[in-house]
């Protein structure tokens, strides 16, 4: 039983890391008031870039770095259109998704199906790894797991809720006009946090193609970016909740894997539907049954609206 639980949690942590990291990035973008629907495309670009980098130079960290850089560049294009030019955020996000999916499949065509020559191998963290259940799940995985679930959420939580800069960020997302009047550089803050969020989405792609599914194939992201965007709503725009939500959906995926491995009498495609249906249930049901949550977990007030200094 313990072995089963440990196995399940390990798989969940591994698979959920993609969602956690991307959702964390999206939390940053949405906290400053920008809906970035390009996550799916950026993730795909990151995944393809990472694989192509490690095929050229066999170092997973270099692959991760390249994916983060490509994510940042893609995010820069999005932020240029949506924040500086103030074009429709939904459209720009969809455009980046199309662009990212198309571009990654085109450039990754030559390496499709090739296994990654190097991956983020599991490493035991001395001491912590021998904890029951939690040890193998969190501290004997690849070295990205602890940053994704613990260090990054802790840092961004501190940044958002315990620093003046974080207060400024939230002000930009809630009421950009007031923030502007208070002398906060609205456009600069929006631009750079959208870029940072996109960089994390690119990194999530690298994590996907170097740690979870160590290869590249067209369509391998298969909606993970969209699930990450949905998780941000479910997580109430909070960093730790986002990481936790990613883990929860990793668990749903893990249960699907378990079902396939154990030969449950359910077809594989039906089991594969679980994460999507789960996401749908988790963003609809809380709103229906827990009215207070709408206030506690509300979206930033200016989310999705471009800021014009002259228009009130």
């Amino acid at each position: 039983m313990i072995a089963l639980l440990t196995g399940l949690l390990s798989t969940a942590v591994l698979a959920g890391g993609v969602l956690s990291l991307a959702a964390l990035g999206e939390v940053l973008a949405e906290r400053v008031g920008v809906t970035d629907l390009g996550v799916e495309g950026l993730m795909s670009l990151g995944a393809a870039t990472a694989i192509m980098t490690v095929i050229a130079v066999p170092d997973p960290w270099l692959g991760l770095l390249a994916a983060i850089a490509v994510g940042a560049v893609g995010g820069g294009v999005f932020a240029f259109a949506a924040v500086i030019m103030r074009a429709n955020q939904v459209l720009c996000g969809l455009a980046i998704t199309f662009l990212g999916l198309g571009l990654s499949a085109t450039i990754g065509h030559s390496v499709a199906g090739m296994p990654a020559p190097v991956t983020f191998a599991p490493t035991r963290i001395p001491g912590l790894a021998s904890l029951p259940v939690i040890g193998p799940a969190f501290f004997a995985q690849n070295l990205l797991v602890v940053p994704i679930y613990l260090l990054l959420p802790a840092f961004f939580h501190w940044l958002l809720f315990h620093t003046r800069h974080g207060l400024n960020m939230r002000a930009v997302g809630e009421n950009p006009a007031a923030a502007d009047a208070a002398g906060i550089p609205v456009v600069a803050i929006r631009f750079w946090y959208v870029v940072l969020g996109a960089a994390l989405a690119g990194g999530a792609g690298a994590y996907l193609s170097l740690a979870v599914i160590p290869s590249w194939s067209e369509g391998m992201v298969s909606g993970r970016g969209w699930i990450a965007v949905a998780l941000v709503i479910f997580a109430g725009y909070r960093p730790f909740n986002a990481a936790g939500a990613g883990l929860l959906f990793g668990l749903i995926t893990a249960i699907g894997f378990l079902g396939q491995a154990r030969g449950w009498p359910i077809a594989a495609p039906v089991l594969n539907m679980l994460p999507y249906l789960g996401t749908l249930a988790f963003i609809i049901l809380p709103v229906l049954f827990w009215k207070r949550m709408r206030q506690v977990m509300a979206a930033p007030a200016a989310l999705g609206t471009p800021y014009y200094r002259s228009v009130r």
Partner: peptide
């Protein structure tokens, strides 16, 4: 998939 990328570019 070039078409998808071109479509994204047009949309942006």
């Amino acid at each position: 998939t070039v078409v998808l990328a071109i479509t994204g570019l047009v949309l942006l």
